[in-house]
């Protein structure tokens, strides 16, 4: 690991006084920095907090919020809670997978999109709901999601 990344992480750890019980907020900050949690970074955190790296990995893989592989630039959150599911969110998920060619990974090959299925966004009245990069889209159809993705792709090309 590079010394500059070590320094960056050490600074975050310092802010939490190297307390192992602050592992979750530490991982959140580190993920903000890297957009995911690289293995050597998790290893370094474990070493500095004097806890096994196996534990850090356990925490990082337990919470859906943490990613151990790089996330795309745009995160597409599709709600698959009860209301959205009834309103055919599955069709939207399938459409996204097909359009972005997602088979083994949830991130598109160009690194632009990551698909995340969430259990409930708390906006059941708008079902089915999709959130892309912080923008909420209500009562989404497969056509709409297709257009939204194309729009972002075109924007990215510019």
């Amino acid at each position: 690991m590079k010394t500059e990344s070590q320094e960056k992480i050490s600074k975050i750890l310092e802010n939490y006084s190297y307390k192992p019980e602050k592992l979750i907020p530490i991982l959140q900050k580190v993920q903000d920095e890297y957009n995911y949690l690289p293995k050597d970074v998790m290893d370094f955190i474990a070493y500095k907090l004097n806890i096994p790296s196996a534990r850090v990995f356990g925490v990082a893989t337990f919470f859906a919020h943490f990613a151990i592989t790089p996330k795309g630039k745009y995160i597409i959150k599709v709600c698959d809670g009860t209301a959205c599911h009834v309103k055919k969110s599955e069709a939207i998920i399938n459409k996204i997978k097909e359009k972005l060619n997602l088979t083994n990974s949830n991130t598109s090959e160009d690194g632009l999109f990551t698909l995340e299925c969430v259990s409930c966004l708390g906006a059941c009245g708008l079902a089915p709901v999709v959130v892309i990069g912080g923008d909420v889209h209500a009562q989404v159809t497969t056509q709409q999601i297709s257009d939204l993705i194309d729009g972002i792709k075109n924007e990215a090309k510019k």
Binding site: M42, D43, S53, A54, R55, F57, G58, T61, F62, F63
Partner: peptide
């Protein structure tokens, strides 16, 4: 340690 969650939980070596 344990890693992953729910039905995906596994005991795995570090990282």
């Amino acid at each position: 340690d344990f890693a992953f969650r729910g039905s995906d939980t596994e005991v795995v070596p570090s990282l």
